[in-house]
Amino acid sequence: MTEIKFTLNGKKQILNTDPNRRLLDVIREDFQLTGPKEGCGEGECGACAVLLNGQIVNSCSVPLANVDGQDIVTIEGFSSTKQYHVIKEAFAKAGGVQCGFCTPGMIIATQSLLSENPHPDDYEIKIGLSGNLCRCTGYNLIIKAVKTASKDGDGLW
């Protein structure tokens, strides 16, 4: 047992727990935040993506030990921001959501990308989404959604 402190969705948290736990399990089980999903458990599919200090990481591949003192935002926390609403509308308008299992991860990837590069071209968008697997859409409508978000949310990032 180790004391681990971190910020989760803007709130300071202190846990006395096993640092070898995966961040994903802690988020889902201790905080009942089930937006991040487990698709592969090995950092390949991106369904478990969260923002760590504002940047996308796969929470299934992050040991809790590594987040001590860090800032974590899940889709639940991100959904109260202006940026989220622009991205959400863009995904809806483009038709970028099918089964939805990869979607929260895609939203996190979009935010991480746009926060670094507010006006990405197609190639940069593809790279930004390259760690998020989607089996339903063939990605094109998601890429379109990211482009729309970048345009509609001009100035937000």
Partner: peptide, 26 residues
Amino acid sequence: AGGTDMLIQNRSHTGMSIGYKTNVLY
């Protein structure tokens, strides 16, 4: 360090701690 490979190599099950077979230093 980042743990991306170590976690996969020592993965157990969803909801379970990473199953390292030795002590670990983060």
